[in-house]
């Protein structure tokens, strides 16, 4: 029996139980339909299963813990409802760390994306050994984060650091990179930028390579200068990539942890400086959970940070859409 015959007979008569070969073929048919309908879901299921286990469950469980006064290792946590959140919104250190986080984020992500776009434009021009340059740009990304942290903390040492020695050589004032709040943010942002700019530049470069040559030719025929071409052709067409780069750097920037932790002069400290002048929210959260052992409170911090990131990411998304489209050829 061929498949077409099978389908034809199926259409004529619904199979009865105990119908012999007919029944089996109907079952096979349903299996085939199930295959078409369900298989795609099965194929993508591993991601969602893994996400549910390592993403969604911790997310929800953290929310649950945040409703308790929960000491690490304590056998009987007490339910306190939203008390942790009430305390959090009156916690000066939380606002201080939130301000630090935004300050470091703006000081890093802003210059980083601008430089990355310019760097990508340079790499996109006719260079000798283009692969060499591209690999060179990516090199800082390949270096160990901890090594970078230790080296930069040394460079920015207030008394014996290289940066201050150079400043002094040029007759500038020495800066206490640890004590001064803004200076410490700049130092940390430099560390972040050094690592991530090349990575972002390569992503943007890939997008630039995908822009059709004809558009530039047409622009040149219209008499557009190189700058004008960049503004009116390159930037608008980079929009989707820029949205991606900005959102990932927002998520990364608001969770910044290792750099401020390693920047602290006290080894292993989570304090973020003597008066928490460069403690970020994630660092504060980590300290609250694993040093102070206030798990419930740390979970509340985690949830508020999650919401903050969601809000900032969507604001960024809307902004980049607007900016990129207003500069477009429309």
């Amino acid at each position: 029996m061929t498949l077409s015959e099978e389908l034809a007979t199926d259409d004529q008569r619904t199979p009865q139980p105990g119908d012999g070969p007919r029944g089996r073929s109907g079952w096979r048919h349903r299996l085939a339909r199930l295959d078409v309908k369900a298989s795609p879901y099965l194929y993508i299921a591993p991601f969602f299963v893994v996400f549910a286990v390592v993403g969604l469950f911790p997310l929800l469980y953290t929310g649950y813990i945040s409703l308790f006064r929960w000491e690490l290792g304590s056998d009987n946590p007490t339910f306190i409802g939203l008390q942790n959140y009430v305390e959090l919104f009156a916690d000066n250190q939380f606002y201080r760390t939130l301000t630090n986080t935004f300050s470091i984020f703006l000081l890093s992500s802003g210059p980083q994306i601008v430089i990355a776009v310019l760097l990508a434009a340079l790499l996109n021009s006719r260079l000798r050994t283009p692969t060499g340059w591209r690999v060179g740009v990516l090199l800082p990304y390949a270096a160990s984060l901890v090594a970078i942290g230790i080296i930069f903390a040394n460079l920015f040492g207030p008394k014996y650091g290289l940066v201050n020695s150079v400043f002094q050589f040029f007759g500038l004032d020495r800066i206490d990179w640890q004590a001064n709040r803004f200076a410490s943010h700049i130092a940390i942002a430099v560390m972040v930028n050094w690592r991530w700019t090349g990575y972002n530049a390569l992503i943007i470069l890939a997008a630039m390579k995908a822009i059709p040559k004809e558009l530039y030719e047409a622009a040149r025929v219209d008499g557009a200068s190189a700058v004008r071409q960049f503004r009116s052709v390159t930037l608008p067409l980079l929009r989707p990539t820029l949205v991606f780069v900005i959102i990932t750097s927002t998520i990364g920037g608001l969770q910044i942890f290792t750099e401020p932790k390693l920047f602290d002069a006290m080894p292993g400290s989570n304090n973020g400086g003597s008066t928490n002048q460069f403690q970020t929210v994630t660092l504060y959260m980590y300290q609250t959970a694993f040093e102070s052992q206030h798990f419930g409170y740390a979970s509340a911090i985690a949830w508020v940070l999650f919401l903050v990131i969601l809000v900032v990411a969507s604001v960024n998304f809307l902004l980049t859409r607007r900016i990129a489209s207003t500069g477009g050829p429309s």
Binding site: I150, A153, N154, G157, P158, K159, Y160, G161, Q178, A265, M266, P267
Partner: peptide
């Protein structure tokens, strides 16, 4: 004014 065990303290 050198934080103990920091690189600056070592240099000190």
């Amino acid at each position: 004014k050198l934080t103990a065990f920091s690189p600056e303290w070592n240099s000190g």
